[in-house]
Design a protein around this nucleic acid. Structure first.
Length: 568
RNA sequence: GGGCCCGUGGCUUAGCCCGGAUAGAGCGUCGGCCUUCUAAGCCGAAUGUCGGGGGUUCAAAUCCCCCCGGGUCCGCCA
């Protein structure tokens, strides 16, 4: 509804500017504290027309003609600004639309565009840790938002099964005895694997001859040796399984796992190399192949192969990206900031190969520990599983305190939902490029206005509806005239435009901010406006409004991958 | 050393792309509100050289230049 209001305002303003005899290319429309939409276009016209901005705003606003059927209440010049306000019709239609669309409210019309979104894709060497924990949460939240915006999204996990790290584990699997390993920290397959990884890297550091054995293993894998392939599959699958278990708790799933080795086996990496070899960018140094990208403004050469001819990670990634673009119109990757250079190089290679499109990349910075970066290899990590357990435990203590009368199962269920929501929200609420330092006391501090706050608002709405019993379908939205009611409706009207802009900008924290504001607006309404204690038509109208709020809160939580509990 | 990112009240942060109304929030602090639909709530107060310095502009947190602090990457790792 807000988008419709905005487009009405745009055309009104456009016409008025013209009628007042001005010319300008941008309307400078923004949401504002002072109005539902405000234009600062008058400032823009000052230099050209040599009049005060106040005078220009006045000229324009005098020419604004609001038509009969519209969502615009009025427009007025306020100093240099031209302010626009929504009318009753806007509020009524918004409420009716939310009830009509229900769980679909907020989603946009289907677009005929296919998107492949890749996220997480970590090295399959052990359990997920908090250092890269932003990746699945950012990726999954974006996917939900983009789907809601009407795109056809496939979520992929790119399995890096061809790395030295995995070969190291395979070597360890063959050469290290069980009893030489530490006890597994958890009964999960990824925790089993990581022990081999840590022990093997330790041995390799002391016995350099192991390194050449590992290189041989990798060579056998790349050349398609069946028993080696079997071993790699076993190790990698164990890791992936463990990670999948962790992420399922956060309601994060993938549509497809794409194995890096597939592109070596099917020859597409070779094809990429052959093509690149024929270009003027290729250069050879000590037997290794590289692309000289200085003409693209990238100073560092893109090294494609080792001296022995084997390919490198980013080379294979080129083949993967060509494949992705064959299956999708838009490609989005969520990656750590350490991959920035490689991605620049990859984009250049795609250009050289004649591809017109390039992937859109959301970079995030790592979550580090106060003492530095996390490392799976060194074992300096906070595992995501531990964070999730702790979050859930902390939530349980809160539920216990507040709702002692609930059954054990109910308390556990609420704690799980609240704990997982808190973790997701805490990570998604800040811009991905901001650096984060992990501290247990911050990560588990739920007193903040975070996910529980929003979930609580939803539970409150549900509680009112439950007590009300049957809700009448017929109601008069015009009765909703309290300031808190009007604010709530206006806030709810924003959801589709938030979805639209976030799907464009790929900034999921905007949705988190919106969710918090919506919950706050609902809580203000809740406090100020009685629902069950009023009678007749007004009660029906307010119940309908509470139902609207319930719907919008649930939908926005859904976008964030957070469960909306009916009770907490 | 070079490239990219970040630097906003005690803490976490929005706004920066596209310059304009008193720089918005949250946490923490201080004070008020449970005989009203769940107080994981609501209301109020205090707290800011927008890292520093120049410049452009009628107007700079926002654009340009330099510097400082932190992160990250820098040809055969993934």
């Amino acid at each position: 509804m807000f988008l419709k209001f905005k487009s009405e305002v745009e055309s009104l303003l456009q016409d008025a500017i013209k009628a007042a005899g001005y010319k300008v290319e941008t309307l400078c429309l923004e949401t504002s504290d002072y109005a539902d939409l405000a234009s600062s276009v008058a400032f823009r016209l000052v230099p050209k027309y040599k009049k005060s901005p106040g005078r220009i705003a006045e000229d324009i606003s005098r020419k604004i003609r609001i038509p009969e059927k519209t969502l615009v209440e009025r427009a007025e010049a306020k100093g240099p600004y031209i302010n626009f306000y929504v009318n009753r019709e806007f509020l009524n239609q918004t409420a009716l639309l939310i009830l009509k669309e229900g769980e679909k409210y907020g989603s946009l019309p289907k677009k005929d565009k296919r998107i492949i979104l890749e996220h997480t894709s970590t090295n399959p060497t052990g359990p997920l840790h908090v250092g890269r924990g932003r990746n699945p949460i950012i990726g999954d939240t974006l996917a939900r938002i983009i789907r809601c915006a009407g795109y056809d999204v496939e979520i992929q996990y790119y399995v890096n099964d061809m790395g030295k790290q995995v070969a190291t584990i395979v070597w360890g699997y063959d050469n290290i005895e069980q009893k030489a390993l530490q006890k597994s920290e958890r009964d999960k397959p990824d925790y089993d694997i990581v022990r081999y990884y840590r022990k093997a890297t330790q041995i390799v550091a002391e016995h350099p001859d192991a390194e050449s054995q590992i290189a041989q293993i990798l060579g056998r894998y790349e050349s398609g040796n069946a028993s080696t392939i079997e071993k790699f599959r076993t190790v990698v699958n164990k890791c992936i399984d463990g990670q999948r278990q962790t992420l399922e708790r956060l309601d994060i799933t993938f549509d497809r796992y794409v194995w890096e080795s597939q592109f070596v086996i099917d020859g597409s990496v070779k094809k990429v190399l052959e093509k690149l070899k024929k270009t003027k960018y290729i250069k050879r140094e000590d037997g290794a192949l590289a692309l000289d990208l200085t003409s693209f403004g990238v100073e560092k050469d893109f090294v494609l192969t080792r001296f022995n001819g084997t390919t490198l990670y980013t080379t294979r990634d080129v083949a993967y990206h060509l494949w992705k673009f064959k299956h999708a119109d838009v490609v989005i990757n969520v990656l750590g900031e350490d991959q920035k250079l490689s991605m620049e190089q990859l984009k250049c290679a795609l250009k050289i190969l004649g591809l017109k499109k390039e992937p859109r990349i959301v970079f995030y910075s790592f979550v580090s520990l106060p003492e530095g970066r996390m490392s799976t290899r060194k074992g300096v990590v906070v595992n995501l599983d531990d964070l999730l357990d702790e979050a859930c435990e902390r939530a349980y203590i809160e539920v216990q305190k507040r709702r002692p009368e609930l059954s054990e199962k109910e308390k556990r269920d609420i704690a799980e939902v609240v704990g997982m929501g808190a973790v997701r929200f805490d990570i998604i609420k800040v811009a991905p490029e901001k650096m984060m330092t992990f501290k247990w006391e911050d990560a588990l501090d739920f007193e903040k206005q975070g996910a529980p706050f929003i979930q609580y608002s939803h539970a409150r709405a549900c509680s009112i509806l439950k007590k009300a019993g049957e809700i009448k379908h017929k109601f008069d939205p015009s009765l909703l005239t309290a300031p808190e009611e009007i604010e709530l409706i206006k806030k709810m009207a924003f959801l589709p435009s938030i979805v639209d802009s976030t799907a464009q900008d790929l900034k999921p924290y905007v949705v988190a901010t919106y969710a918090r504001e919506l919950a706050e607006t609902f809580n203000q309404f809740y406090r100020a406006v009685p629902v069950l204690k009023v009678e007749d038509a007004l009660r029906d109208a307010r119940l309908a409004l509470v139902d609207c709020a319930r719907i919008v809160l649930a939908n926005v939580l859904g976008l964030l991958g957070i469960t909306a509990p009916e009770s907490m």
